[in-house]
């Protein structure tokens, strides 16, 4: 294969131009998915982490079982299960709803474990000081513990968010045309790898700033610990 042929097969401007509308639609879906799935997963995680502070085994054991279950199931399996399974329970769900539910369960379990570690990293004296001044347990959690908890595990939260955004590509299995799905469509129509390369570049442009931010935070935490 000559260099020209290589360029033609992987980086053809002509093909890119042809495929762009398809890719663009996919990009929009990926962005939409991320904007839905990240906050939802975070919310699920927050609920789990808060439940984790309840000292009752009637909460504790179901919680452990829940988190273990949804961290063990491969997200892809979970998604197919939700999409194909819920109709049997009489619930027709759109692809987007299925993805939202699947990520709420899977991603929520991960965010939940991260936030739980964050909450546990805040010294007990912080809550005691807050309660001594008359704050309720909920107020102490909201104003004193959670802000510190989130700050302490921010790199982990961001790192998980990166994974989540990348994972949105599995939405294609329930025929939700996100970026990677669209790129493969375009590839099969054009018999050319350029759309795939373009998708890779788009992912990179999308996520690289977040990766940089993450590195900086990690470096700062390392420096703080010294």
């Amino acid at each position: 294969m000559s260099f020209d042929e290589f360029l033609q097969a992987f980086f053809s401007l002509e093909i890119l131009q042809q495929a762009w509308p398809i890719l663009w639609a996919g990009l929009l879906n990926t962005l939409l998915l991320s904007v839905v799935v990240v906050p939802l997963g975070f919310l699920g995680g927050l609920i789990l982490a808060l439940l984790g502070t309840v000292h009752s085994r009637w909460v504790r054991w179901p919680l452990i079982a829940w988190v273990d279950l949804f961290r063990s199931l491969p997200p892809l399996v979970l998604l197919v299960f939700v999409y194909a399974g819920l109709p049997f329970a009489g619930l027709e769900v759109t692809a987007l709803t299925a993805v939202a539910i699947g990520f709420f369960l899977n991603t929520g379990a991960y965010y939940g474990e991260i936030l739980r570690a964050g909450i546990e990293s805040v010294p007990r004296g912080q809550v005691e000081a807050a309660r001594c001044t008359g704050l309720t347990a909920a107020q102490a959690m909201a104003h004193v513990v959670l802000p510190q908890a989130v700050r302490n595990v921010l790199p982990d939260l961001i790192s998980n968010t990166l994974e989540v955004v990348k994972l949105t590509s599995i939405a294609s299995v329930v025929a939700l045309p996100e970026l990677l799905f669209q790129a493969r469509q375009a590839q099969s129509v054009t018999y050319n790898a350029t759309p795939i390369m373009a998708a890779a570049v788009i992912y990179f442009i999308l996520l690289w700033p977040v990766v940089r931010l993450l590195s900086r935070l990690e470096n700062r935490q390392m420096a703080g610990r010294r």
Binding site: Q126, A129, R131, C132, Q148
Partner: peptide
């Protein structure tokens, strides 16, 4: 508890 102020060895400032 608002009538009882408490100060700790470890300050416990936020």
């Amino acid at each position: 508890r608002q009538r009882i102020g408490m100060v700790f060895q470890s300050f416990n400032l936020y």
